[in-house]
Amino acid sequence: MKIFVLFFIIILISIAFSFVIDFMMAIKLSIAMQNFKKPFLVMTYPKYLIGFAFLLTFVLPPIYIYLKKRKYTRKA
């Protein structure tokens, strides 16, 4: 579960860093949001699937370990 939380903290920090850089360049918030969304607008379906699979490699193992520990503690 710690890895799961750490993963999301790193994502949030990288998003915040992107916005801070945009604000330091005197870019408006609406344009900064567009800059954040543009890479996703030009992606094709195979790229979405690859990105989703990459995300799952970080999300599924901590969930599996958590459920395995939970199942073990219920039996004991």
Rank of each mutant, 00 (worst) to 15 (best):
F8Q: 03
D22M: 04
M24F: 13
I13D: 00
V42M: 09
M1N: 06
M25F: 04
M1H: 06
K75C: 02
M33Y: 07
L49D: 03
I27A: 10
F58Y: 08
L55F: 15
P62S: 08
S14G: 05
M43I: 06
M43A: 08
M33D: 00
K75P: 00
P62D: 08
F52M: 14
V42T: 10
L60A: 12
K37V: 13
F40T: 01
S30R: 12
A76F: 11
M24P: 00
K2L: 10
N35R: 12
I31A: 13
N35V: 02
R74S: 05
S30G: 13
K69C: 03
F23T: 01
V42G: 01
Y48V: 13
I21V: 14
F7R: 11
L56T: 05
M33A: 11
I50F: 12
I13C: 04
T73S: 15
V20A: 04
F7V: 07
Y45W: 09
N35G: 07
L41M: 14
I11M: 09
L60D: 02
S30V: 12
V42F: 09
K71E: 11
K2C: 01
T57W: 07
I31M: 12
V20I: 09
R74M: 08
K38L: 10
K69R: 09
V5W: 14
R70K: 13
F58Q: 05
I11H: 03
M25P: 00
I10T: 12
F40K: 00
T57G: 02
K68N: 06
A32P: 01
P39A: 02
L55W: 14
I10C: 10
L6A: 15
T44Y: 03
K38T: 06
L29N: 04
I50V: 15
F36T: 07
L41T: 07
K37A: 12
I65D: 10
A16Y: 05
I50T: 15
F4W: 09
A26I: 11
I27D: 07
K71D: 09
F7A: 06
A76W: 04
V5P: 00
F19P: 02
A32N: 01
K69N: 14
L29H: 06
L12M: 07
A26M: 05
M33S: 02
F17E: 03
M1D: 06
F52Q: 05
A16P: 00
K68V: 11
I13A: 10
K38C: 00
K38F: 08
F52G: 11
I21K: 11
T73G: 00
Q34M: 09
K68L: 11
I3R: 15
I3K: 15
Y48D: 11
